[in-house]
């Protein structure tokens, strides 16, 4: 841990990273793996955006109860991102609309973008990592 702190102090290069989340939680392992990678990346002090689009918006739903399927409820972990200084969370309006969802249905505060805004955000990244 302390080694990582030394490392990011040393390099000083900040790149724009986008983590693109397109899968529903639980049915595949993508959502959980993506979240873990973001938490690890946070140690490197990069400019991180997390984007939720297509079925990825389902990851952020309130009221998730995983007791019945006996898996970890990692939806609560999205609320820890703020403490990791990851504050740029985006959803796209079209994906929300297609699923009958609004920002009130989500467990964290997000910025809702139009398709054009989302496309621009993606185009300006140095690195896009897709889950």
């Amino acid at each position: 841990m302390s080694d990582m702190d030394d490392m990011d102090e040393g390099s000083g290069i900040v790149k724009k990273f986008m983590f693109l989340n397109r899968k529903a939680p639980h049915g595949t392992v993508y959502a959980l793996e993506g979240l873990e990678v973001v938490l690890i990346t946070a140690a490197f002090d990069q400019d991180v955006s997390m984007v939720f689009t297509d079925d990825g918006v389902y990851q952020l739903l309130k009221g998730i109860d995983t007791k019945g399927i006996e898996v970890k409820d990692f939806s609560k972990t999205y609320r820890a991102l703020d403490g990791y200084d990851i504050e740029k969370l985006y959803v796209d309006q079209a994906s929300m609309d297609a699923r009958g969802l609004t920002e009130d249905d989500l467990i964290v505060d997000v910025t809702t973008l139009s398709v054009a805004e989302m496309a621009n955000l993606m185009a300006e990244q140095d690195v896009v990592i897709s889950f």
């Binding site: 998730i64 109860d65 399927i69 297609a98 699923r99 009958g100």
Partner: peptide, 29 residues
């Protein structure tokens, strides 16, 4: 409610019996 497939499901329910697994619904909020 509000899913893109909702209309298709409701139309299909006229001829088919549609079931969904409760624990999977709960796990997805």
């Amino acid at each position: 409610n509000g899913s893109a497939a909702a209309a298709k499901i409701q139309a299909a329910a006229a001829d088919l019996k549609i079931y969904a697994l409760g624990p999977d619904l709960a796990a997805r909020g």
